[in-house]
Write a protein that binds this DNA or RNA. Structure first.
Lengths: 340, 340
DNA sequence: TTGTAAGCGTTATCAG
DNA sequence: CTGATAACGCTTACAA
């Protein structure tokens, strides 16, 4: 690193204008100015006008810390992400942020970024308690994360990005996993496949369970399956196993794109062409789907819409603290690429 | 979207503990409690102890809005991103966030995410003025973005992610573009290429200028070049032109990965194999480099370090408002993949 | 070293 | 409809 400095001193800050001064300038009381600023209806038209003039004359801007002190609102929410390296770089994350911001930005809410890490849970809870955060959106919390439970216990506004692993009275948004898996089965049938199989996700996660259940329900309960762990390596192993036990398979639903990424090379090495010999459908529509060769047909969740909905549910909780817990389920869609 | 609600009412919030109550519990004044909380040295050891006990007994947490009101600090900084769709999904962004958070998180600073959009500039300036934000990190501001100038004029703490297009007394972090381009030239020479050429970036941007200048200086001033606009399409056009004018070229430095992404197919269509016939080096080490076929050798900036340094420079400005403007320049490195 | 008291800039209650 | 006035919870001179 090469550093150099240019010496350009800064001028002093311009002083801040307060309510008091605007009031003086307009010849009214602070209370009245406050009313005008907050758009309270019951203000005489002439007075309102005079105050507005004084406001723009003085360049007044309300001090939000002061407001926050009395309203007990921080006007800030946190987006808590798993701190695995990949998530921040995944397009999925970009979609979440965009979706959330479509509702937070117009509402004047600050979106604070946090990642799950040692002590982050503490931080978030403490920020909530200290009035520095009004609520949190939790993305992909892991099975044994204590945070959701603590937030519920503390009665803090919170929304999850999926059904919680263990039953908890908490608001969440999710995709209808079962329908997604059924979509995959129907599509495989539709392209003429008859000997179906599936690589399932871990059976101790809600998504893993639902996708398997959904696929079996649509493809037939006798459909062979092998379970993976949502990783590339797991997909590889499962595919190998599946192929050994059921060499005649011609259509497989892999419960995550990442696992599919690991499964495809196994098929190729086994002399199966995709999609000619075996058609493959993934799940998630993550970047892994595009990195596949051939590009993967996959089940997609409407991420931006879901993120926006999370934000809306959060705002509702913040504004009405006794909003009942809710779950909003979205329908997934199929993105057809070249693996089927 | 399919929605359903479970009706589980919430219990009322637990009441907040104030300094006052801790003081009462410890039998001291609020001032003393405040001193203990803020770690002021001049507190009697016994009293400090009693106060700490009272704090944990009562479960006291300072109200940050109140503190903010008197200290005039928001303990929050914004990360302003260009709102082009691609940036949020690019791994580059993830690195920036991680780098920035390595310094903001331990400092207890909230990282607020914002994108450049209609009116966002206003928002940021206003948040700064209203004491809701202490400073701003601006990523990739475009040539005619008025925001940097406004922040400088308003004497707000700010750091840019690159040298500003027009001279401005503003603190920034950058990579040594000229060295990066020279690195590319040396590498091409090193792998035996003698007929070099380059596809330059737009010549009205600092990066575009420096990368061209650096390459010409290292490869020879007579080196042929065509200019692109940092887009895929621009890279395609430029490569076509270059190949028409200089069919014998065997090594080309493309000033951005995205342009390289557009240039590679042109080479292939012209019957040139990469890297056998023509070696190609890109710049940025963005996701586009990996999407290239073959994966692109490229010049990489130490993004996380740079982001962390931006955060440090920002914190310094916040803590010492008359810190002189500075520029910190990092050395790039070459990431060798299969295009050379 | 500790306590008293004066703010910090709003909002909100309650008379008028 | 408007204006005093009392919070909101904390920091910080200044005094003791």
């Amino acid at each position: 690193m090469v550093g150099y400095k240019e010496v350009v001193p800064r001028r002093p800050m311009t002083r801040r204008v307060t309510l008091e001064e605007v009031a003086r300038a307009a010849g009214v009381s602070r209370a009245t100015v406050s009313r005008v600023v907050n758009g309270v209806a019951s203000v005489d038209e002439n007075i309102r006008h005079a105050v507005e003039e004084a406001i723009s004359d003085t360049g007044y801007l309300p001090n939000l810390a002061a407001r926050s002190l009395v309203t007990r609102r921080a006007d800030a929410v946190a987006l808590v992400l798993p701190d695995e390296d990949r998530v921040l770089g995944d397009p999925f994350f970009g979609r979440v942020v965009r979706g959330v911001m479509t509702v937070t930005a117009p509402a004047g809410l600050h979106l604070v970024l946090t990642t799950t890490g040692v002590g982050t849970g503490e931080q978030v809870v403490s920020d909530l308690s200290r009035g520095r955060l009004d609520g949190v959106i939790l993305i992909h919390t892991s099975r044994n994360d204590p945070l959701p439970g603590r937030l519920v216990d503390g009665h803090h506004p919170v929304v999850l990005s999926a059904r919680p692993p263990s039953p908890l009275p908490i608001t969440y948004v999710d995709v209808h996993q079962i329908s997604g898996a059924a979509l995959a089965a129907q599509h495989l049938r539709h392209v003429g496949r008859t000997r179906l199989a599936t690589i399932a996700g871990p059976q101790d996660t809600p998504a893993g369970q639902d996708r398997l259940r959904g696929f079996l329900a649509a493809a037939g309960t006798g459909t062979p399956w092998a379970d993976g762990d949502f990783t590339m390596a797991g997909g590889e192993t499962a595919m190998t196993r599946l192929l050994a036990d059921h060499p005649g398979v011609d259509g497989v639903f892999v419960a995550s794109d990442l696992m599919a990424r690991g499964a495809l090379p196994v098929l190729r090495r086994a002399g199966r062409r995709v999609p000619e010999d075996v058609a493959v459908v993934g799940f998630d529509d993550s970047s892994a789907a595009l990195d596949c060769d051939p590009p993967l047909t996959t089940v997609r969740q409407p991420t931006e819409d879901m993120a926006a909905e999370m934000a809306r549910l959060l705002v509702r909780q913040i504004e009405h603290p006794d909003t009942p817990v809710a779950a909003v389920i979205f329908q997934p869609t199929l993105v057809v690429r070249h693996s089927t």
